[in-house]
């Protein structure tokens, strides 16, 4: 049986991508293999580890639990889209670096997209809010403390700068 294919058009980080993809291809594989955006990591591939989290129409979603064909006509933000047009790290990215919120970096794309949504939804999160937000993201290096500290610090930096997460 020949592989059923579909044409899709997806806006990723503001740029329109077109591809012909097998209908069973996950969105995470499409981002990495079709669009060359390997910042999104693929860990467990069944929705547990959170590494593949992207923002789908502004909301965090596991890209391994979506089909690429379902993204047709939708907007996605990945870790590659978080820095400014001039290439500066976002407040959250800078805070994560300053607080040693990553070591191997495997969980980082999921942490950053998840926390970017949190800071947009809730500009003044508590320590508990942050921990609940990242409860669906596994990190085996940091022990999470640096990530939580970075998220709280980033919220303050965003307020000080009067900008958006």
């Amino acid at each position: 049986m020949s592989e059923p294919m579909r044409e899709i058009e997806v806006t990723v980080n503001g740029k329109l991508h077109r591809a012909s993809v097998p209908v069973r291809m996950t969105l995470s594989d499409c981002l990495r293999h079709e669009f060359g955006l390997t910042g999104t990591h693929v860990g467990c591939e069944h929705g547990v580890c959170g590494a593949c989290t992207v923002l789908f129409d502004g909301h965090s979603a596991r890209s391994c639990l979506m089909l690429a064909v379902q993204a047709n006509g939708h907007e996605i933000e990945t870790i590659e889209g978080l820095e400014s047009a001039k290439g500066e790290l976002s407040h959250l990215q800078a805070a994560l670096r300053d607080h040693h919120g990553l070591q191997c970096g495997f969980c980082t794309p999921g942490m950053l997209t998840t926390l970017t949504e949190l800071l947009r939804d809730n500009p003044s999160p508590t320590d508990s809010d942050v921990r609940i937000a990242i409860s669906g993201n596994l990190c085996r290096c940091t022990g999470y403390e640096g990530i939580v500290a970075a998220a709280l610090d980033a919220a303050q930096r965003i307020k000080d700068a009067g900008s958006r997460a």
């Binding site: 592989e3 059923p4 579909r6 209908v23 069973r24 594989d29 591939e45 391994c64 089909l67 064909v69």
Partner: peptide, 11 residues
């Protein structure tokens, strides 16, 4: 690819 092969319908 992880998922098995299937035909996709979007009514």
């Amino acid at each position: 690819m992880k998922p098995p092969s299937f035909a996709y319908h979007d009514p």
